[in-house]
């Protein structure tokens, strides 16, 4: 369904992705893991045109999308939603207005109808009492749930999660895990999740791709990754400070 072929990406001459190949099937929960700065977020931003490849190809449902103009990505962003690392709710809008925005812009709904729909969706994620609050008046967990609600307003086929549990307490983190798993199991939503959270990774992933030095070092089911004989993979999943892994900055 989604495929990256030989993707290269560099920033200011520094290569981040080098000949990256990755595939994600429909309805799958794929985790992309790796050390900080290895290019996990960069990888998923390419899928919705927020970043453009220097070389390589990106395919979505048999259609090559990496060279499409910005305008053509509007239709793709209706189908592929993204939850950013920070909640990224807009400061100048209430929670309901934030969630209503994609309905108004992508869904072409009128403001009143979009707001009513947004309130209903926020009710579903337990934020009914906070719909008229501004993001600054909400906790981190509420903001994150609001951002997830906003990403799901258009009933996307694919959701990209960029570190969805970072900064959340363990209870809220597991709730987010459960939500991601339910989206895949009940609605057939494909989820690509960038994460460092090993508890999440091994609890809900169908497959895991381990990024290292710009490419996919290992890819497989949680059991396959756990049983990998690659010392670099083992160092990462065991969280050992010393080992063969070369981490920039340390």
């Amino acid at each position: 369904m989604i495929e990256l072929r030989g993707v290269h990406k560099a920033f200011a001459g520094r290569p981040v992705l080098v000949d990256l190949d990755l595939r994600c099937d429909r309805g799958e929960v794929l985790f992309i893991i790796g050390t900080s700065g290895v290019g996990k977020s960069v990888t998923i931003k390419h899928l919705v045109g927020l970043l453009r490849v220097d070389a390589g190809e990106i395919w979505l449902d048999g259609r090559r999308i990496d060279a499409l103009p910005e305008r053509a990505f509007h239709a793709i962003r209706r189908r592929v939603a993204m939850v950013f690392q920070g909640a990224t709710l807009f400061d100048s809008m209430t929670l309901a207005e934030n969630v209503a925005l994609p309905l108004r812009k992508h869904g072409r709904m009128r403001a009143a109808a979009a707001l009513a729909d947004a309130r209903r969706r926020l009710d579903e994620v337990g934020l009914a009492d906070f719909v008229d609050r501004y993001p600054a008046e909400l906790s981190d967990g509420m903001r994150k749930r609001g951002a997830i609600a906003r990403a799901l307003t258009l009933d996307p086929e694919v959701v990209l999660f960029d570190e969805p549990t970072t900064g959340l307490d363990p209870i809220n983190a597991r709730r987010v895990d459960r939500l991601i798993r339910e989206l895949a199991d009940r609605r057939g939503v494909t989820a690509i999740v960038v994460s460092h959270d090993l508890a999440s990774i091994f609890a809900i992933a169908d497959r895991i791709a381990f990024l290292y030095q710009g490419g996919v070092r290992a890819c497989g089911t949680p059991a396959e990754i756990r049983g990998s004989d690659d010392p670099v993979v083992q160092q990462f999943i065991q969280g050992r400070a010393s080992g063969p892994m070369e981490t920039p900055g340390f």
Binding site: F73, T88, F90, P102
Partner: peptide, 15 residues
């Protein structure tokens, strides 16, 4: 807004 990815979120919202 740019460095906190709100601009990217706007683009994702069809804006």
């Amino acid at each position: 807004m740019k460095v906190t990815e709100q601009i990217d979120a706007l683009r994702m919202s069809g804006v």
